[in-house]
Computed example of a mutant assay.
Amino acid sequence: MLNKFSDYIYYMPNQDENDRPTLGLVSGEQYSLIVDCGNSTQHAKDFLNEIKKLNVPPIKYVVITHAHWDHFLGMNEFDATIIVNSQTNKLLNVWQSYKFDDSSLQTYKQSKLMGDKCIEIIQTEIPNRNQFKLNAPHIIFEKTLTLDLGNKLCVLEKINSTHSDDATIIYVPDEKVIFLGDCVYGTTKNSLFHYKKSLLLPMIEDVQKYNAEAFLLGHESICDMEEMTTFWRDLRAASKAVNSSSLEDALESFNLENNRTPNDDELFFIKAFVNDYIIQSL
Rank of each mutant, 00 (worst) to 15 (best):
L156E: 09
I170L: 15
K176W: 11
H194S: 04
T230K: 04
S221Q: 07
A238Q: 00
L216A: 06
N190H: 15
K189T: 08
P173I: 13
A241R: 10
K196A: 10
N243R: 12
E226N: 10
K158T: 06
T188K: 14
E226W: 07
P173Q: 14
N160Y: 02
M203T: 05
T162V: 04
T188Q: 12
F193M: 09
F179P: 12
G181E: 13
C223D: 06
C154P: 07
N190Y: 10
F193C: 09
V242L: 12
I222Q: 08
E205N: 11
K158G: 04
T230G: 02
K240A: 11
C223S: 09
R236D: 00
Y210A: 04
A241P: 10
S246A: 14
L200H: 00
K197W: 04
A214V: 10
E175S: 15
E157P: 01
L192Y: 11
S191G: 10
R233I: 01
K158D: 07
A237P: 01
L200I: 06
M225P: 00
M228K: 03
A167W: 01
E227S: 10
D165I: 04
F179A: 14
S245G: 14
A167H: 05
P173H: 14
K197H: 13
F193A: 10
T229S: 09
F179D: 14
F231M: 02
N160E: 09
S244A: 15
A212E: 01
G218R: 02
P202W: 12
L200V: 07
L180V: 09
L192N: 08
I169S: 05
V207E: 00
G181M: 14
L235Q: 00
E220V: 10
D182W: 11
T188L: 03
R233V: 00
E157N: 02
D182G: 12
L192G: 07
D224N: 15
M228Q: 06
L200D: 01
K240Q: 15
L153N: 09
T187W: 07
L192A: 05
V155H: 15
K196R: 15
I204K: 00
K158N: 08
A237N: 11
E175F: 10
Y210Q: 03
I222A: 09
C223R: 07
D166C: 06
A167C: 06
Y185W: 13
D224Y: 05
K176D: 08
V207L: 04
N160V: 02
L180Y: 07
D166V: 03
N190K: 14
T187Q: 03
A167I: 00
W232F: 03
F231S: 04
D234F: 01
A214F: 13
I222F: 07
R236L: 01
L217G: 05
D206A: 11
I169N: 10
S191P: 06
G181H: 13
K209A: 03
N190V: 09
I170G: 11
N211A: 06
V207N: 01
D206F: 00
S221T: 07
G218F: 06
L192H: 06
E175H: 13
S244K: 13
